[in-house]
Design a protein around this nucleic acid. Structure first.
Lengths: 230, 230, 230, 230
DNA sequence: AATGAATGAGTATTCATTCAT
DNA sequence: AATGAATGAATACTCATTCAT
């Protein structure tokens, strides 16, 4: 049944809608727009039409590529995860130099490749929506968190083995790397965008430098004078 | 008008809402139920009827106390934030002992009073919903983050002044306290609930102990052998 | 989130919408309206809002009582079927008189109780939508067609046993009763409503009288002069 | 322009549509596919893309031949109805033999040429969709029902005139021929496809034989012993 | 005060139809 | 002529909010 407005030849504006054919590019454009909006507003508060509009297509086109909003969400998460650790593992396998430098390089590189890009939104997304998408949360744990733990664990172990780092409880020490980075992206995607006037903004590079500095001090083998009684 | 203690009762414990009818308790029960659900599912994905049901009242009653779902959300945040730092400031003003012990006490106490209780959900909420409620985010920054920064800043400064901690960039060092604690509540309320089988669970007390340990090492005045070239 | 028009207090007409509370009566009213519309336009072409409007309620109310349009359809069919044959079986069990009279009474009564009422629409519905609702079609076969076959079969057998009717192939003879009645309701709900000008309308009572007459002639024991060679 | 025989090909057989590309056959294949689907699912529940797919062409091609789904429906009905009675009238005009045989031949032939073929779907369609397409219903009445009435009327009148049939109310007696045949196609296209296990299936040829038998008995001139009191 | 039936704007999704290729 | 990507009006369904009881 043709829409009434079309039968009556009603055209609100002079510019006809652009009907570009970009089948190859569509999914990527839609995933990008969806990532932006899901990160910014959350899954439930993001309207499908908004995603389509930001990707420059109509509502219908979105559903041409993703069968439902939920599948779109899953695709957004999977897209940003797929095959990200393989390259990293190789890269750090061949790293030469002190493990301290390695850790610093590791965290700075993470910022450049993940933290500073849209991909960091995935972390925000999962933290915010995990309980609404339990299967995805487990998938994320397996595909992202576990490999990340392993990679960091290997770096720390290298430092200990080479006598650069002190003995630590590895399972929890890993969080000393993960926590500040995770906090950074959460901050960037939430309160960081609502900086109240008067407070100095958090500069990511400086934040990371400070965290690395504190971490390397914390891992150093020299005894501290802190808590001598303990 | 319900007594303030009732209104604030959601901060005190995790005990499930009582289904017995105590008229004066209604707003508090609703706020408690709302906090639970908003934290778990987000603002948009939480249905008003669900909140009412969990509070043991009917849908209509919810709107008797709160004019809209949005106002309910704001009330949840505001109630949970109200003046927590006055007592804390006083408490730590009178603290005697090493600043290291003070910092450890500080972080452990935060876990007992905030992190382990429903109140920690507010942090999760604000991180997740900040961009949907910018005014609340600014309110949160002013009422929670800024006082927290100041309190932590004062503790760290005490350590430096007393020669216990090394010289650091205060603005960023504060994040070395805030980041791990914030990460903990985010984790607890999101991915931590979706532990994939086979991985060891994160035990909050041990996590905090580890973070404190690393932090105090990182703040210690002794030089490290890390990056001797630098 | 309150609808914008309500926040702005836009009221298009002076008469406020009637908010009658009629929980008991709603399902019946909705089923009645749905039967009308499904019969008239088919399942797919009937809009849920239309059903609600004809029942004098809003869209939302419909879904308060029936979880989906499909469930509404099923309820419509089931409602018109439930416990219809019990009374009939008893009634005809106690019939006294010739079986011819019985059959005439049977078909006239069917018209009064079913054919002339909205219930006849169910037959039209099932004939039109059977392949869209296969499970319902089977349900209808079991709950309506099979009992009807049995009832008619018992009547015809009575006539044969009493020597009033000739020997016939019972399985197919039953259709000599069912077919004309089914045709009548199909006609009434379809082409009968589109009588082209100039043609005489089909008067149900006369149609049934004619069919009964033909049927009883057809069942009579006297030999016919038709097809003597056969 | 495809030859008429192609356009009408849907009336001739039930053979599945050929997927090989014969450009000239497109409209016919589309009409065939459309008839199948409209009959099976109804107009509203049939998707244009499905019709195209079954005809082995793309969605766009359908609208190349038919300006809208509604026009496609009308074309399906019109094509299937076109002039069928001229040949029949001539055929039966020249029939020799008893009118009983004529009527039997007539009904059997109808089954072979119409009832057993896809063309019978048109009857199902009109019965189901008449109220959604009143103009088509009137068209159908004029082109199919009225000629059919006249043809049957002439046959019955021949029997009466020749003393083979008893006096009857012609207008209604005609329905004694039409009703069982119409019922048969409705059954075949609806509930007949949902035979519940355990029940014997309706065999069309036997059904027709039974109906003819009953009809000829009913039309016979010999008095019956039925209702002697009346 | 409390209830829960009723409302209707809003949203995901479908699908007839268009049009660039 | 044919394709199928793109469109957007239409529709089922949800849920915050209202209000008669």
């Amino acid at each position: 049944m043709p829409p009434l407005s079309r039968l009556l030849s009603i055209n609100k504006s002079d510019e006809p809608p652009r009907r570009e054919r970009r089948k190859e590019a569509r999914p990527g454009e839609l995933l990008g727009a969806a990532l932006d909006l899901f990160v910014e507003k959350g899954f439930a508060a993001t309207r499908a039409e908004e995603v389509a509009a930001r990707a420059g297509v109509s509502k219908g086109t979105l559903f041409l590529y993703f069968p439902s909003k939920e599948e779109l969400f899953k695709a957004v998460v999977r897209e940003s995860i797929t095959g990200r650790f393989n390259e990293w593992n190789a890269e750090f396998e061949s790293f030469e130099g002190s493990t301290g430098d390695m850790l610093r390089y590791c965290m700075n590189t993470w910022w450049e490749r993940i933290g500073a890009t849209k991909a960091s939104g995935i972390t925000k997304l999962m933290m915010s929506e995990a309980s609404n998408f339990p299967e995805l949360a487990i998938f994320y744990q397996q595909e992202v968190m576990t490999p990340a733990h392993q990679l960091i664990g290997r770096v720390l172990q290298r430092g200990i083995d080479r006598g650069e780092f002190r003995q630590i409880d590895m399972a929890y020490a890993i969080f000393s790397v993960i926590a500040p980075l995770t906090f950074l992206v959460m901050w960037k995607h939430s309160l960081g965008a609502c900086q109240p006037i008067g407070l100095p903004a958090l500069v990511p590079e400086q934040y990371i430098a400070s965290q690395v500095d504190m971490l390397l001090h914390g891992l150093s083998v020299r005894p501290t004078n802190e808590n001598p009684k303990k």
